[in-house]
Design a protein around this nucleic acid. Structure first.
Length: 250
DNA sequence: GGACCGCACCTAACGGTTAC
DNA sequence: GTAACCGTTAGGTGCGGTCC
């Protein structure tokens, strides 16, 4: 889907992009090879340097950074699955605002391994763990997780591309919060954490602080469910959006 | 030159968190 | 349990540019 993208050309929006596809230009290579013949001259002249820059960027190690900067945030989903350094992220809050800004747990999932960072224990290792990723995936992270992390960790390294599944899923008709969407799609959670929500995470942290030995493992299991389930949700949203766009193009 | 389309701007809606 | 707040996106509108 990434190489079918022409939205980053100035003057090209969703409708004009679909017109480009309908004209028979279905990739950046198509644009350079056949665009002069198939597209209006003005559009081709305007788009050619942009498409050339995009193809060059793909060959470089910092391709995600370059391409993410060229695309509007709502279209960052197109970068996946072209980049395999993806981290799924979720934070829990409710702790002491004077310590780590109230952030209690940060969970990262790279598609294979869950890593969790706990306030007062190993949360300072978060920056190192995040470093090198191309894409960070969250649910509602654009308005919560990312701004909070930026505020707490002033020099935190963040991946150049951010996919906020709250908005990506909304575009394919899935709304109502993460847990409800998971249920709609048949994604399950273990009995110990099924039914828990953000407020429960706050209570679990308070119980952990009070000395309850079972609270932190439950909180970590809840956080792990949040991040692990983001992966199938992203795959589903990507496939549905891709199918929808291609169907609209006819 | 008319029709179409993208951009910029503004407002509403959304989901999560927080405070009461 | 409810309302307020936050930041982002979606949708509507008017303007200006491009295409046929």
């Amino acid at each position: 889907m990434l190489k079918r993208t022409f939205l980053h050309i100035s003057g090209v929006g969703p409708k004009r992009e679909r017109a480009i596809w309908r004209a028979g230009v279905e990739s950046w290579e198509d644009f350079l090879d056949r665009g002069q013949r198939l597209l209006p001259a003005g559009l081709h002249n305007l788009g050619r340097p942009v498409v050339e820059r995009s193809l060059e960027a793909l060959q470089r190690p910092d391709a995600a950074k370059t391409l993410a900067a060229m695309l509007p945030p709502a279209e960052h989903w197109r970068l996946w699955p072209h980049f395999d350094r993806v981290v799924y992220l979720d934070i829990e809050t409710g702790g002491d605002p004077d310590q780590w800004g109230g952030v209690t747990v940060v969970g990262l999932y790279d598609g294979q391994t869950v890593r969790q960072f706990v306030a007062g224990q190993n949360i300072h290792q978060l920056d190192h763990a995040m470093h090198g990723a191309d894409i960070v995936v969250t649910f509602a992270g654009a308005s919560f997780d990312i701004p909070v992390l930026r505020a707490v960790f002033h020099n935190l390294w963040l991946p150049p591309a951010h996919i906020d599944l709250r908005w990506t899923l909304k575009r394919v008709g899935l709304t109502g919060g993460l847990k409800r969407i998971e249920k709609q799609l048949g994604l399950t959670r273990p009995p110990g954490v099924d039914g828990l929500g953000g407020l429960d995470a706050v209570h679990l942290w308070a119980r952990h602080q009070a000395g309850d030995p079972s609270a932190l493992p439950t909180l970590l299991a809840y956080n792990a469910c949040d991040i692990v389930n983001l992966q199938p949700l992203l795959a589903l949203a990507h496939d549905r959006l891709r199918q929808t766009l291609l169907a609209q193009a006819g």
